[in-house]
Design a protein around this nucleic acid. Structure first.
Lengths: 348, 348
DNA sequence: CTGAAAGCGCTAACAA
DNA sequence: TTGTTAGCGCTTTCAG
């Protein structure tokens, strides 16, 4: 139909603006604007008249142009690094739904390997987002400062930066690690091991700390630790092999997430011929769908993902309307889900 | 700091515009614009001078305002329905990365249960997206027409609408179903069964058709079919139970995705005490991470997700610059991944 | 190569 | 309640 790159003028040919509607309806431009502005004062007749013309022309207000005046885009940037960890699909599900329900749109950015978070933040800010959620590595002071200056509420999701000018929504991973330890302490096994996540992941660090603390305080010791390079089944297999090579072989292992735990269970059974949970007790984290599968029946800890998302959305909605610099931290608790991956205690 | 909702004028207090930079640098507004417009003609001195002022003020061009003139937002709408199916996290990973690499941003919309796709399309169009990807139920003629009028390229991802004015990127699911049948025909089992996905899912319909056709053409019969209400492990457990209750009990089953297959395997072993693959051969679809786990070793079919995303991005990038109405369909092939979930043939 | 001026599509005072 | 008039922050002719 048209072979050469479209020029701006050609492209707008098809567009219908508020002015077009105004002319068609024989009213002023502002009348049209008001009809499409919730809570503006327009007479019923005017509304009907304008809407008829608008419908006939297929008019849709251009929210970008609107944003220019209102200084509000209804856009929320979501910067994610974890596109390998299945729980983040659930997180995205909740985020998109929750934001949509509040009239906000999700601008999704990926900062997995290779991508620069600093750069992505810059990009998303160019779109004048009304709020920003970051669930990725280090949130630099530069980013927080940028957001503060522009009065854009910034929420760190599922991670806990040292201390900085931003809001935080997370779970108490340390407590979670302690609960996990508690479950293993109830088993008859005493050679405690840990399969942690990536060295730099705050979730892994915190869960590991809680686990270790609880074990130590109970008068025991974590005899072996390995780190998975990422929170995936594949990485879990590798680190499970390393862990099970340790002498003496750990028999009560906490894994920083379910996929690592499932990998450990498979390697233990398949490559070491261990019978589970008799010879090896395992606790995971996240309670993914398959943790309940009869192949695993994994005892694990569940994060209240939906509640976390709601808290995040609450903070955003509120701070978008009323800027203030008292940063808040909302830390939720995770709950244990008891299944059958832990050996019963000896009968004494 | 400030308790009442911010007014527009208060909010823009912190913003720094191109005009500010121009003043600070003692040049014209257009000069600043040119410096930030790739491929505009500016002298080196001018560039330096402007950039210095810009850096000092922390200036970032407002892409929304720019879009108003250029009629290009660099925004791509992605409408998804499948936030339960883990492969879509991978899809999103690829999409965000690929689009980012091309200077495009992802506006993500969720149309899972309850959400109206029609409405979401309307919302996303208000943002003047440059392109639109839809991987969700029915793409109405209204949507395609809307996009056509506004010259916004529209791609149906991983599904195949009857025939309509849009581009299509998908895999040959019918062929995939046939290949799956082929694998099962190689086993010694002959009581063929099918666990399909949701009744309306085109993927499920197509895969089922291919499977059935191939089985029939080989002179056999699919003796039992059940539908999972969604593509999840949990739904899989339910439909597996229904399928295994059928008399005679199927012993060669194709499942419309891996989660359903894994659920079937678990139910078969755990609740029916079947030994796999001896008493039951299973083929899945998608090749999720855990399909390779030693608990399953599932023979399955892999979709070239990354390639599909690339094709989609290619279509978009090209059509964004050059509108045309010759809609193209790119159908890729899926490849079989052979593992150990199929019983060996009898030794004849 | 640079600046002045017009205008993208809309909302927000201000009058009427 | 309605219309008129300024812009929001930027790009883009068009002169110089």
């Amino acid at each position: 139909m048209n072979d050469s790159p479209d020029s701006p003028s050609e492209r707008l040919a098809s567009r219908v603006s508020a002015m077009d509607v105004a002319r068609a309806a024989g009213v002023s431009l502002s009348a049209v604007s008001r009809v499409f502005t919730p809570g503006a004062s327009v007479s019923a007749k005017m509304r009907v008249r304008v809407m008829e013309a608008a419908d006939k022309l297929g008019y849709q207000p251009n929210v970008l142009a609107r944003s220019l005046m209102t200084q509000r885009t209804n856009l929320v940037g979501v910067i994610l690094a974890n596109f390998k960890n299945p729980v983040y699909l659930t997180v995205l599900d909740h985020f998109t739904r929750t934001l949509q329900a509040r009239g906000l749109r999700t601008l999704l950015l990926n900062v997995s390997e290779g991508q620069d978070i600093e750069e992505m933040a810059r990009l998303v800010l160019q779109y004048s987002v009304d709020g920003l959620v970051v669930s990725a590595g280090a949130i630099s002071p530069h980013i927080t400062e940028q957001c503060r200056k522009r009065r854009i509420p910034l929420v760190a999701f599922a991670r806990r930066p040292r201390r900085a000018n931003l809001h935080v929504v997370c779970v108490d991973n340390v407590a979670g690690g302690r609960v996990a330890a508690g479950r293993l302490l109830q088993s008859r096994h005493r050679r405690f091991g840990l399969i942690a996540g990536p060295e730099t992941a705050s979730t892994s660090i915190e869960r590991g700390k809680g686990f270790r603390d609880e074990i130590t305080e109970a008068g025991h010791e974590v005899i072996a630790t390995t780190h998975a390079r990422e929170y995936t089944y594949g990485a879990g297999v590798e680190s499970a092999r390393r862990l099970l090579e340790h002498t003496p072989r750990p028999d009560a292992v906490f894994c920083a997430n379910d996929l690592l735990a499932m990998a450990l269970m498979d390697v233990a059974r398949d490559e070491y011929g261990l019978s589970l949970p008799d010879q090896l007790s395992v606790v995971g984290f996240d309670d993914v769908d398959l943790a309940a599968a009869s192949s695993y029946r994994l005892t694990t800890l569940r994060q209240p993902l939906e509640a976390m998302v709601h808290e995040t959305a609450d903070i955003l909605s509120q701070r978008i309307n009323t800027w203030s610099e008292d940063w808040e931290t909302r830390q939720l608790a995770c709950t244990a889900v008891d299944r059958a991956s832990i050996a019963a205690a000896t009968g004494d």
